[in-house]
Design a protein around this nucleic acid. Structure first.
Length: 463
RNA sequence: GCUCCCAUCGUCUAGUGGUCCAGGACGCCGCCCUCUCACGGCGGAAACAGGGGUUCGACUCCCCUUGGGAGUACCA
């Protein structure tokens, strides 16, 4: 049997980090077993659902590379089938009309809470036979009073619920629309979902859903409830912790492979391994290796992974992305693709890469005061003079010859390389940090290098 | 409150009764490399929540406590 998993977000906001990981695990499990991964947009809450949110979610999944099979199913379009299921349940005695008003229910719950009981619908309409003309009603599922329902979870193991704890849930609202539990069950069954992988915040719904499957004469799928992701402080993920929306990571210059790798390792592991390509994840992922404990989001580890993937990426590919992030014209200056390699091992994300490449295309407007004070000494001018003079006469302008020249000048003055390299770095970049000075000057070209040095020295001496 | 879930270094985790005075990774600290920043290399500090059992033997099994989390809607 080929397996089929699904990701079923409700389009009420953005795709957040937790949802993305749920989608990832669901996708990985399906791909690992050569099964199918489908999408269902749970838009039955018409009040809060928007088309924009749906688009954002689809874009997020695409960016992460989580491709789905077939077209997304919109739950709202399946209302008729949900109603049919509800009617079937009524006919077979598994559901009934409930005419209780919200006020009545609120009062009931309040009283139960006051008595220290768990608020539950008490089933007062179960045996009601009259059907008040024109009175609004909801349809409730008649949950068994006795016995227990066990969820055989692939991550958590068997979880036993006492049926007495479960009250008669509403499956059809007074406006005739289906509620979540009915809709998921009907849709997962109709869509042939074999494995439901979702956040463990849904665990408490599962026994109810199992009862619905049974009442409808359907076989429940396999369930796998994966632990939640918390914020760095252990509480629920929220804006307070920085980025929660997957799109924010894209904008912050993160690579999808890094995010996927990081997310995969949150809850899943494969021995001592940390770095996994997409292909390796598909090969190795299994729900059996998913842990039960909630994890905290660690930005630093994501940064590390992103830096790792940045270093491994092909300069040509990075150049395309970085070009779009530059606020200066990269046409005038060295080939961006040649600049990238000098920056890869010193950048954590695409934004830093772009920032680091900037000075190659724009002469320094100002000079870092602290760096100047620290590196320009009385003897500096002599070294710079010697360098400039000999640079002009250099046959070949390459990283190797530049390096040799700097070394020679420094040796001549019995100074360390830093005595010359730092002042040059400041003159051509404006600051004390850049890729290796030889490679930098080689990329910049002799003319631009000497021009910048001269302009810089004039500006500094004019202070 | 009630129901359910969870519990190894700061964080992510390995560990499925003895091979663990607990391993890896991020972060942190130190040293090395070095023209800056990084990268890289080497080394270090750092954890089995507590208490009872079971067992010849518990990080591993059971119970309790404590601590986190989720649910408790005509939301999903």
């Amino acid at each position: 049997m080929t397996i089929r998993t699904r990701f079923a977000p409700s389009p009420t906001g953005m795709l957040h980090i937790g949802g993305a990981r749920t989608a990832l695990f669901s996708w990985l499990y399906a791909r690992h077993l050569g099964g199918e991964f489908v999408l269902r947009i749970e838009d039955t809450d018409l009040e809060r659902s928007t088309d924009e949110a749906t688009q954002v979610i689809l874009d997020g999944l695409k960016w992460l590379g989580l491709d789905w099979d077939g077209e997304p199913v919109f739950q709202g379009l399946r209302k008729a089938e949900h109603v049919v299921a509800a009617e079937q349940l009524i006919e077979e005695g598994h559901a009934y009309r409930c005419y209780c008003s919200r006020e009545e229910l609120d009062a009931m719950r309040e009283e139960q809470r006051a008595n220290g009981e768990k608020p539950k619908y008490d089933g007062r309409c179960r045996h009601r036979s009259d059907r008040p003309e024109g009175a609004p009603f909801v349809v409730r599922f008649r949950s068994p009073d006795e016995g227990e329902t066990v969820v055989r979870d692939m991550v958590l193991g068997d979880v036993v619920f006492n049926n007495a704890e479960l009250d008669d849930l509403i499956i059809l609202r007074s406006d005739g629309s289906p509620t979540y539990n009915l809709a998921v069950v009907a849709d997962d069954a109709a869509m042939g979902i074999t494995h439901v992988v979702r956040g463990s915040d849904h665990l408490n719904n599962t026994p109810r859903q199992i009862q619905l499957y049974q009442a409808l004469g359907l076989t429940p799928p396999q369930f796998a409830h994966i632990p939640l992701i918390h914020g760095p402080d252990g509480a629920k993920m929220s804006k307070r912790h920085g980025a929660v929306a997957i799109t924010e990571y894209r904008e912050a210059g993160f690579l999808p492979d890094a995010v996927v790798n990081y997310l995969a390792r949150l809850g899943w592991s494969h021995g001592d391994d940390e770095v996994f390509s997409r292909q390796q994840l598909v090969e190795l992922f299994d729900l059996a290796q998913v842990g039960k404990t909630a994890s905290r989001f660690d930005q630093q580890k994501l940064d590390w992974l992103n830096a790792h993937y940045l270093r491994e990426s092909a300069p040509a590919e990075l150049a395309v992305q970085v070009a779009g992030l530059m606020d200066v014209d990269t046409a005038n200056g060295p080939d961006l693709e040649a600049v990238i390699p000098t920056l890869q091992e010193r950048s954590k994300n695409l934004l830093e890469l772009a920032a680091g490449a900037r000075f190659f295309y724009q002469r320094p407007q100002a000079f870092d005061e602290k760096a100047v004070n620290k590196n320009f000494k009385p003897e500096t001018d002599a070294l710079l003079d010697a360098f400039v003079q000999q640079a002009a006469a250099l046959d070949d302008w390459s990283a190797e010859t530049i390096h040799a020249l700097i070394a020679a000048v420094c040796e001549q003055f019995e100074a360390g390389m830093g005595k010359l390299a730092q002042p040059i770095r400041i003159l051509i970049s404006g600051g004390s940090v850049s890729p290796p000075i030889d490679a930098t000057l080689a990329l910049l070209g002799r003319a631009e290098t000497l021009e910048r040095m001269q302009q810089g020295r004039e500006k500094l001496s004019a202070r």
